[in-house]
Amino acid sequence: MPIPYLENVLPGPGRAPVAFAHRGFSPAGHENSMAAFRAAVDLGYGYLETDVRTSADGVLMVFHDATLDRVTDGTGPFSARTAAQLRQVRIGGVEPIPTMEELLAEWPDVKINVDVKDRPGSALLAGLIERYGAHDRILVTSFSDRRRLGVFRTLSRPAASSGGVLSVAALTSLGRVGLARTLGRAARMQAVQVPVRYGRYRLVTPAFVSRCHRAGLAVHVWTVNEREEMERLLEMGVDGLMTDRADVLAGLMQERGFWPQRVQP
């Protein structure tokens, strides 16, 4: 069954490779802020990548780290604070931490790649998908397959998904013996989102991409910031790239006729 999230159709023949703005776009380092997401959308991005964590009082917030220290003017565990307290913290001393609902509602035409960082977030994300009818706009992923699959327990219809660490590891080994399609179905995934390398092991190769495609799985690669590497991977046939350098990837996609990727409602 076709998954609308993965059908990145632009004017002209065929599909375009997907360009993801990784945590939005902010040269100032204000990642996962509404300003960073707005900058990416203004560049023409139709796909945003983000992370979600749960506040102490059960609100799903857009944030990557388990602690506030690296990117905000706050300190300590993220999960120890209520949503109201987290809204007082500033990313880079400037930008407030958004809620997932705020991001979902801001651009009804934009698709969002959501990495679920804690167990309570699974049910909360499912609730938001249902409330906004966002099944075709969300790709659910997580390093934990348990968290990822937890989102689907209460959804009324399917949404796209990328496998967690265990699913990708199994795909890497079993795919070589022709079991990639079977594994993809069993793991309830339509895409694999992976780095070029795990340590010294080069994961994304022409053979890996080919096996995934034969199994009906899209290949999205993170986090690619150098233009030369972007070009190499696109020539290899990957289906999407995630980048912190949204400006560089947008320029490359423009040259190839794949831009802009935001389809106005």
Rank of each mutant, 00 (worst) to 15 (best):
S210V: 00
Q254E: 15
H135P: 09
E229V: 14
E130Q: 12
P27L: 11
L10H: 11
R211V: 09
L125S: 01
R202P: 12
Y45K: 06
A83V: 10
G24A: 11
W259G: 10
D73T: 01
G150R: 01
V194F: 04
Y198K: 11
A123C: 02
P260D: 09
L86F: 06
G46E: 05
K111T: 09
E130L: 07
P4D: 04
G163A: 10
Q261E: 07
D69V: 01
A16R: 10
R153A: 14
D42F: 06
R70N: 00
S167M: 02
V196D: 09
V41R: 05
D51C: 03
R23D: 04
G163N: 03
V62K: 09
C212Y: 11
A170M: 14
Q261F: 00
V219M: 05
M189P: 03
G12T: 11
E101H: 10
L174F: 15
M189L: 15
V52C: 15
F63P: 03
Y201R: 13
D145W: 02
Y198E: 11
M189Y: 05
Y201G: 03
K111S: 14
V224A: 02
A19S: 02
M189G: 03
G133V: 02
L179C: 11
K117R: 12
P27A: 11
I91H: 02
H213N: 12
R148G: 07
D109L: 09
Q193P: 00
T154F: 06
T205E: 12
V41Y: 08
V177K: 06
A170I: 04
V114L: 10
A16I: 01
R137F: 10
V9I: 15
L139V: 10
V177M: 14
P2W: 00
A218P: 01
A126N: 05
V114G: 08
G175K: 12
K117V: 08
A215L: 06
R81G: 01
A123K: 13
R148A: 08
L249V: 06
A169G: 12
D51A: 04
N113R: 05
Y198A: 14
L241C: 12
G58Y: 12
G164L: 02
G92K: 04
T223N: 03
F20P: 00
V151I: 04
G184H: 07
G74H: 00
R119H: 07
Q261C: 03
